[in-house]
């Protein structure tokens, strides 16, 4: 088996194929009954928002080359629980409490990874068990209900769109600005493409890694807040499949898992693309299983194309 013959066709595959697929999708979408309606566009954006917010945060971590977190669902759950448990003090208190929870838990993992070079996967599995176990311990395994309800405003739909969509856009802009316009943001790319070189060049690898993970933590907490508001109570399964859904959105956005490349805007596009495809399949009457299957194939295709593109441009 030789890997050489792949090269000449790589450019064709990595440029033409996505274009064809996109044209096919657009064709399929506009011919789908009820796809081109304002309500449907709203539904797509709304279903993008929860996962999208977390995925934008996960982008920073993946660009930094510290891979992925397998503790995302648990962190969102605990942030959501704190949010509901502090409702009686008003949103002004409850939202910061959730944010601090997310930032502290996730930033701490970032510190161990950044300063101590711990393996992110092992560490986040451990953190997931610790957070999940402690959450069940303190909640007694029963759902958390708010004493009073202050979150209603988060479920409202100003100008026809859920608040979460505006937050998603805000988070994306903030992440994109951090990545392109600030020193730590640009350093993230350097650290992600070559950690050893970044360290040798005297970049504050530890500090920048913590910033990326802390930002990620804030994003997870926001998703937790919206999930809790949406569900009006929080159980241990509040986070659901957030962990992998967020990674999938980042990957479909074309960010490489090895780090050094990617952008928050592209992750947003990835999240929207997944939502559009699920929506088209749903409207055409395909089952949940087929929707998940297609999502997996989409992630696989994008991962392969991004990889071919990257290895070609490196030569």
């Amino acid at each position: 088996m030789t890997a050489v013959p792949v090269r000449p066709s790589a450019s064709v595959v990595s440029l033409a194929l996505p274009l064809i697929a996109l044209v096919a999708l657009v064709g399929l979408a506009v011919t789908t009954h009820r796809f081109l309606s304002l309500d449907n566009a709203r539904a797509i954006l709304a279903s993008t928002a929860f996962v999208g917010i977390t995925a934008v945060g996960a982008t920073l971590v993946m660009i930094a080359g510290s891979g992925v977190s397998l503790a995302t669902s648990q962190t969102a759950t605990v942030a959501g629980m704190f949010f509901l448990a502090t409702q009686q003090y008003g949103l002004v208190t409850a939202v910061p409490v959730a944010l601090v929870t997310g930032v502290a838990l996730t930033g701490l993992q970032g510190a161990v990874i950044g300063y101590w070079h711990a393996n992110p996967i092992v560490l986040t599995i451990a953190a997931g068990f610790a957070i999940g176990g402690t959450t069940t311990w303190f909640s007694g395994g029963t759902p958390v209900y708010p004493e009073v309800v202050a979150y209603e405003v988060l479920n409202s739909t100003p100008l026809g769109l859920p608040v979460a969509v505006y937050v998603l856009l805000g988070v994306t802009v903030l992440a994109q600005f951090t990545l392109r316009g600030t020193t730590p943001g640009r350093q993230l790319y350097l650290i992600g493409s070559n950690r050893a070189a970044a360290r040798a060049a005297g970049l504050p690898v530890g500090r920048v890694t913590v910033i990326a993970w802390a930002f990620f933590g804030a994003c997870i907490a926001l998703t937790g807040v919206f999930l809790a508001s949406f569900n009006t109570s929080a159980t241990a399964t509040l986070g659901g499949t957030l962990t992998l859904d967020a990674i999938a959105a980042v990957l479909v956005g074309g960010t490489a898992i090895s780090g050094g490349r990617g952008s928050a805007v592209r992750t947003l596009a990835g999240a929207v693309l997944i939502a559009v495809i699920s929506d088209v399949l749903l409207l055409r009457g395909f089952s949940t299983g087929i929707q998940i299957l297609v999502k997996g194939i989409l992630v696989l295709a994008v991962v392969v194309i991004v990889h071919l593109h990257a290895t070609r441009s490196h030569r």
């Binding site: 792949v6 999502k295 696989l300």
Partner: peptide, 19 residues
């Protein structure tokens, strides 16, 4: 053949297989 990292590939397959 593509010398591609296994984690994103197998993650995608995992999602597809669950589907």
């Amino acid at each position: 053949r593509l010398r591609i990292p296994s984690m994103p590939v197998t993650l995608a397959t995992y999602i597809a297989l669950l589907g």
